[in-house]
Amino acid sequence: MSQSASTMGNEKIGSSRRKFLKSAVTLAGATIGYTWLKSSQILIFAAEPKDETLPWYGIAIDIEKCIGCGSCAKACKNENDVPKEPFFFRNWVEQYTVKNDGTVDIVSPNGGIDGFVQRVPDEDIFKSFFLPKMCNHCAKSPCEQVCPVGATFLSPEGVVLVDEKYCIGCRYCVQACPYGCRFIHPVKKVANKCTLCYHRLKKNLAPACMEVCPTGARMYGNLRDKQGPLVKFLKEHTTQVLRPNLNTGAKLYYNALSSEAR
């Protein structure tokens, strides 16, 4: 009785050892195979742009300097041929007014293009500020991740772009962007968004919104350049991104961002 039980035990151990060795060899083989495939770039989708010679663009907006003139929003529409009617914006300005009773009034008449008229009387205001908004050019952008056809992507320079020939207009990215920075172009019927004026960057010109900002509240620059003006600005100011909890890797840094900002 006891002898037969011990034999059975030995068989069990023998078979499980064989199984273990088999799976160990398979795992090792798969790991080596995957490493080889990855290094030979056969698995193209695992490739990551790591070109250190290219800039890695970031943006900074100084809320203390913004006077809400709407020049940026206007220039963006002119430069990029964005439809002029409201609701199509690549960049716009909001006015936040925190009242003494604690409620927050947020307005953005035509994206700020026509200027702002203060609609809360001075005596009711706790504080008020302008919040210019645009694409955050996230390093881990949700819009890029949901695109089913690979039409939206993060360029090697860190600019989120839309391939208009590939976009099928499914609106997934419009839903996914937590900053509301995308829309469907009413004529082209494809997704449209801020490109950080990619066509201007290629000609060494500043994006249109930054070209026209009268107070220098907006700036862009190379985050890899540790001596550059953008990194210097980030070093000298207390900056924050919008919705940091979403871990989007946003590269649009606001100076003096109030906690009421959404």
């Binding site: 006077i67 809400g68 003139c69 709407g70 020049s71 006015q95 936040y96 007014t97 026509d114 200027g115 702002f116 008229v117 203060q118 809360v120 001075d122 205001i125 008020s128 500020f129 302008f130 009268p214």
Partner: peptide, 9 residues
């Protein structure tokens, strides 16, 4: 657009 009185400026 720039110079009008506004509490946010």
């Amino acid at each position: 657009n720039c110079h009008m009185m506004n509490a946010a400026r």
